[in-house]
């Protein structure tokens, strides 16, 4: 794919390519790739790195199934070009258990099992990654649209009521309607350890 596109101007004939060699740091490992710039982070994970846990539900940031953590923050991986994610620390559902080591499962994964927080399972990896990000945000005291006093924000994640969890998780659609179980699972984890395990992932600059 090297070379000039149709209608190219001087700059692209001389210096630019449509693909790049780079590495993505995923779940703690550097993964070298040569990718067309059009490849999104989601497709890089699914099609090029055999990490199919992140799901493609809409490919436009309208469902949340592709949610992963980038530098500890939840992100729709379908709206990030992979080439722009180099240098970031990416954590997918396949790596979240490692955030809570030495647990075999991340506490949220266990809680989703315990509360039957899923049915078909397709939105589940996104729900879990998003919940980790949401609890990280809450641990900073960040309010949500459901927070009564914006300036006061929220206390520990364990203080989030169900409406807070629901609002913070609304970017993750679940067509099976497993919402009640999902909210129960997140509340349990938020309350059980004050969101401590997820919050460890939250410091800017490192998911691990």
């Amino acid at each position: 794919m090297r070379g000039a596109p149709p209608g190219a101007r001087l700059w692209d004939v001389t210096a630019h390519a449509f693909h790049s060699d780079f590495a993505l740091r995923v779940n703690g490992a550097d993964r070298p790739l040569t990718l067309d710039h059009r490849v999104t982070l989601l497709d890089a994970l699914r099609e090029h790195l055999a990490l199919t846990g992140a799901k493609k539900g809409c490919d436009h940031g309208q469902c949340g199934a592709c949610t992963v953590l980038i530098d500890g923050e939840r992100v729709n991986s379908c709206l990030v070009f992979a080439v722009a994610a180099q240098g970031r620390d990416i954590t997918t559902i396949e790596g979240v258990a490692g955030l809570a080591a030495p647990e075999e499962l991340h506490p949220l994964q266990r809680a989703f099992l315990d509360h039957d927080g899923f049915q078909c399972g397709y939105c589940t990896p996104g729900q879990i990654c998003s919940a980790i990000g949401a609890l990280t945000e809450a641990a900073r005291g960040w309010p949500s649209h459901a927070t009564a006093d914006l300036a006061a924000g929220v206390g520990a994640p364990g203080e989030l009521d169900a409406d807070e969890i629901r609002e913070r998780m609304s970017g993750n659609l679940c067509r099976c309607g497993a919402y009640p179980g999902i909210v129960a699972a997140i509340r349990e984890v938020a309350g059980a350890d004050g969101g401590g395990a997820p919050a460890r992932a939250g410091a800017a600059g490192g998911a691990r």
């Binding site: 992100v75 709206l79 649209h145 927070t147 970017g171």
Partner: peptide, 19 residues
Amino acid sequence: FPALAEALLSGASGQLRTV
């Protein structure tokens, strides 16, 4: 500027707002 914070929090989703 609470109106600005409210506006931001009522838009998009958590994972869109991070980016």
